[in-house]
């Protein structure tokens, strides 16, 4: 099996091969890789792919996993409908 075809970010359909390509281009943080290929930008916000990508960065750079910084965690915790955000002002 060709490992490069494994989907690493299932929200945005990013493969291991694409992640390795970004790392090879010198992008050694989750923040940079995310902006280059959208990994971690989907509905799960990187909950699945972040640890996998961290491992890849650690393997490629020789740095311990603990030294690979995590990206900024942004709201919301889970996807929320616009319609749900509308009300609440008047205890409705």
């Amino acid at each position: 099996m060709n490992h490069n075809d494994i989907i690493i970010c299932r929200c945005e359909d990013i493969t291991l091969g694409e992640i390795r390509e970004q790392i090879a281009q010198g992008k050694h943080t989750l923040e940079e890789i995310k902006r280059a290929c959208r990994s971690g930008m989907g509905p799960c916000q990187g909950r699945t792919c972040a640890p996998l990508i961290v491992n890849e960065i650690a393997k490629a750079t020789g740095k311990p996993v603990a030294q690979i910084p995590l990206p900024t965690f942004r709201p919301s915790t889970s996807p929320i409908k616009m319609a749900s955000l509308l009300g609440g002002d008047k205890h409705d």
């Binding site: 509905p43 900024t72 942004r74 709201p75 919301s76 996807p79 929320i80 409908k81 616009m82 319609a83």
Partner: peptide, 9 residues
């Protein structure tokens, strides 16, 4: 209104 918000910054 029917769209899900995924992220804000």
């Amino acid at each position: 209104a029917g769209l899900n918000v995924v992220r804000q910054w």
